[in-house]
């Protein structure tokens, strides 16, 4: 690449109040990390509710967890970890100026995220079919415990909020994909890919905790 065009590109993405690209990149990344802090505490409230109720009703969690399908939970874990890998690969492609690599990796990530949501959809409908609805609409009688509805309220809140985050992630990935097709990203400027990647990895991490806490109670 010729010298002047690199310089032009550099000025193109640099906003007026930053001194240089590095300052802008580091600021964006720190901003994303702070946002992730808020996400952790946001889910933290739910985890706290989970811990309190599990400490009160350990036998309920043992009984109710049997009604969640460990196999599909495990499959979803694998799906999300794979999508984390492809996001990391997309960032690597951007860092190395491999335009095609960014597009392919983002596309696979989006596909995997859809697979995750489809599996989640089947898990939910299966439960709705037997009357395991959240909260007051809970009508299932297969679990011999008075507070069975609470386990599933927590389950739906946690996986539901996580699912919303996956959907938001899909939206962001599609936006990145469209920009990548226009060749917006390069080793000079790939901030949006990097920080969306951070977000996506956090969604993965939260699932890493949800899976053993909800599905794997033996």
């Amino acid at each position: 690449m010729e010298q002047p065009s690199t310089l032009e590109k550099k000025q193109d993405h640099l906003q007026h109040h930053f001194v240089d690209s590095d300052q802008q990149f580091e600021s964006a990344k720190m901003g994303m990390w702070i946002f992730l802090v808020t996400e952790i505490l946001f889910f933290g409230g739910l985890f706290a509710a989970y811990i309190v109720f599990r400490s009160w009703y350990p036998e309920l969690f043992l009984l109710a967890s049997d009604h969640l399908d460990t196999f599909w939970g495990a499959v979803n874990t694998v799906v999300l970890i794979s999508s984390s890998l492809t996001v990391a690969m997309a960032i690597r492609s951007a860092q190395l100026n491999q335009q095609k690599g960014i597009i392919i990796n983002l596309a696979i990530t989006i596909a995997l995220a859809f697979v995750f949501m489809v599996i989640k959809y089947f898990e939910y409908t299966e439960k709705f079919a037997v009357g395991i609805f959240p909260g007051g609409y809970y009508t299932y009688e297969g679990i011999a415990h008075d507070q069975a509805n609470i386990f599933f309220s927590i389950y739906y809140m946690m996986t539901g909020l996580h699912g919303i985050h996956v959907v938001v992630g899909i939206g962001l990935m599609v936006w990145l994909l469209l920009r990548a097709r226009k060749g917006h990203f390069s080793s000079e400027y790939y901030t949006p890919v990097e920080i969306t990647g951070l977000y996506w990895h956090l969604v993965d991490i939260i699932w890493i905790f949800l899976f053993p806490l909800l599905y794997l109670i033996d």
Binding site: I40, G44, A48, I51
Partner: peptide
């Protein structure tokens, strides 16, 4: 930042 968020979650719970 990450460690802080975990510490404050632990304080909450």
């Amino acid at each position: 930042l990450l460690i802080t968020s975990i510490v404050f979650f632990l304080i909450l719970i």
